[in-house]
Structure formats: structure tokens, C-alpha cells
Design a protein around this nucleic acid. Sequence first.
DNA 1: TTTGATGATTATCA
DNA 2: TGATAATCATCAAA
Length: 398
Amino acid sequence: MLSADHLLTLCPLCFAVAAGLSIRGAQEEDPPDPQLMRLDNMLLAEGVAGPEKGGGSAAAAAAAVASGGTADNSIEHSDYRAKLTQIRQIYHTELEKYEQACNEFTTHVMNLLREQSRTRPISPKEIERMVGIIHRKFSSIQMQLKQSTCEAVMILRSRFLDARRKRRNFSKQATEILNEYFYSHLSNPYPSEEAKEELAKKCSITVSQGVGSTITVSQVSNWFGNKRIRYKKNIGKFQEEANLYAAKTAVNAAQAAAVAAQNSQANSPTTPNSGFQMKDEEYQLDSAESKNTLLTNMFTGSSGSYNLPNSGDMFLSMQSLNGDSYQGAQVGANVQSQVDTMRHVISQTAGYNDALGGNAMYSPHSLNGNGGWQDATTPSSVILPTEGPESVHSDTSN
DNA sequence: TTTGATGATTATCA
DNA sequence: TGATAATCATCAAA
């Protein structure tokens, strides 16, 4: 009776069949290596392994989306694609080479075994073992290839994604617009989505960061996020800036109020004079300087309160400036911004800081004990008096 | 080259 | 989901 060994010895074809079976067997029996699976999955996801998908354009597109991609980095996308294609080509070439080498080596070993089988009996198990060793060797080489390919892709990807970190400062005008909004809504610097859109639109008009480049809503969100945290962390440092913008806003507010008063007085026979009608004094708004003087005098004068007759939202008691409350049925939606603005002016004149203390003249009103911005007296919507009906509104629903 | 300012990202939380 | 806090990375002035 012929043994299997003998059969193999006699029949070289059986040798090959046995080898083939043993290779397949080894492949089928080996549990899937989780690390290899991860590498395979990643290479598939990156478009390196698997069917050609346009040289990784999908991955590039995904990366573009992740980077908040716009048309401005299409050059980088094509660069990314080109490099990914290169990696893919190298990977497939190498993979093919390894497979070819594996087959050649297996054949070579089989031939050797066949040669040996003439001098000694060789069992199918031995053949299987040898083939298994070869297979594992080449598998580890393949693993290394996949690993280094993954690394290359990761490096490429990180370099590509790092490009999104490249930043340009916003234009001066854009920063000013954002700052103006921030400081005029200091009690509640949380612009609504609409406000952000509006600001983004406003800023994109003036921003000049290159062709096709605009400030997006998410950039506005980033800006406010950064601003809030940095302001809160170092109020003192921002004091000067806050004063600057507050004065600016105050002047605008005064101008608007003056215009409103003028318009109103033009229709009123009982108020013949133009300009602000204060309790004890009368001011003409002829220049920016005089407006500033007006604002200063507003709070340094003996009067415990001031009224701006005919100016709608401007009814505001001095008590409100303590940061505790503001009163009056006629206090309109834009009062809070006025409070913020005025408080700055007051701080500049050093005439009104008893309730706040330290350098907290301006902001602490906005920051509660927990470091939050919420203010119980903050109106639900704030509109700068200088702004038109289409102006930006803050959303205090946060 | 150093340093402060600032836009962007990420982890965490409510 | 949006806010905060921490951090990174880059820009720009000194």
C-alpha cells in the first residue's frame, strides 16, 4: 500500500497541490490579525488599498471638509491627491513585488524539498510547515509595508491638515467691527447665529486676506470665544481697549441720540434748542471733542440722574449705572449696551466707581461670581442705537 | 531669535 | 449643541 509520503515522492504535481492546499489552509486557519485589519481598514479608508477612487480624492475631500475647506486651498487638495496617488502606486508596486517574491520563494523551497524527497521521505506536514514559515515571513514583510504606508499617509495627512492652522490676522476693520460689537455687548457678548452671520458679512466687506477669502460664521464664533476667554482672564489688559471702544460707541450713541433729539425737537415747539437737554445743562454736539465732554459731564455733574428727553431708549436712571438694575418703563432694548458704554466713560472720568471697585469699572458687572457673563438685567435683545433696523442683534438665550 | 498676539483646534461640560 | 478652558501654531514686531 502506498503511503502519502510515497505518493508525494512519486508525483511532483501532488507536491504542488499539497503546497497549495497548505498555503490556503494556513491562510484560512490563521485568525485575522487585528493590527493587520486596522492597517487594511485604514489603507482602504485613505483610498490607498482597494479599488482606485480617483487617487484619494475622497480622502482629500474629507480632509477638506474637516478643515472647513473652501476654494482657497484647492491647490493644497490637488497636492495632497498627487502625493497620495504616489503613495498608492508605491504601495501596490511593492505589494506586487512581495507577492511575487513570496510565490517564487515558495516554489523554490518546494523544489528544494522535492529534491530532498529523493533522498529522504518528506511528510505533507513538513511541507505545510515550511510553506507556513515562508507565508508568515512574507506576511510580516507585508505588514511592515502596510505600516510604513500608513505612516506615510498619516504624515501626508497631518501636513495637509496642518495647513489649516496657517492663519492670517483679520483685517484691522474686521477686528474693529468685532471689537465694537463685543464691547458694546459686554454684558452679554454672545451673538446669535444671525448676529454672527451679520458680523461675518460686515467683516468680509472690509477684510482683505486674499482673493476669495472671507470671515466665516465659525471664525466669528472662534473670535468671540477667544475674546471672551481672554478678556475674562485679563480684564486689566483689555481695559484700555475697552475704554477706547466704549468711548467710540458712546460717541456714536450720543450722535444718534442727538440726531433723534434734533428730529424730535424740530417737530416740537416746546424744545426750541438743538442738542442734548440735560437736567441742569445743555450741550451742543458740534464736534467729537464736545461729545466726549458731554459724556464726561453727564456723569461728573451734580445731577443724580440724567434724562435725554425725546430720545426713546435713553431714559436711564443713575441707579442703573450701578450695575444693579436699570429702571423705567421706557427703558428700551438697547439700554444695556448703553449701560456698558456709559460705564466706560464713567471709568475714564473717575467719577463713578464706588459700586464696582478696583479696575473692575467696566466688566465685573458682566461677569458674575462664577465667572459667567450672565446678567439678570440683561435685556433679551440688544441693539446699538447707532445701528439701523438691519443691525446685529445679540441673543441672550445662551 | 524671542516674545506677545491671535486664529484655530480639542477636550470637557452642562 | 454651544460654551469654556487649555493648548497649539503662526504671525509680526522688537
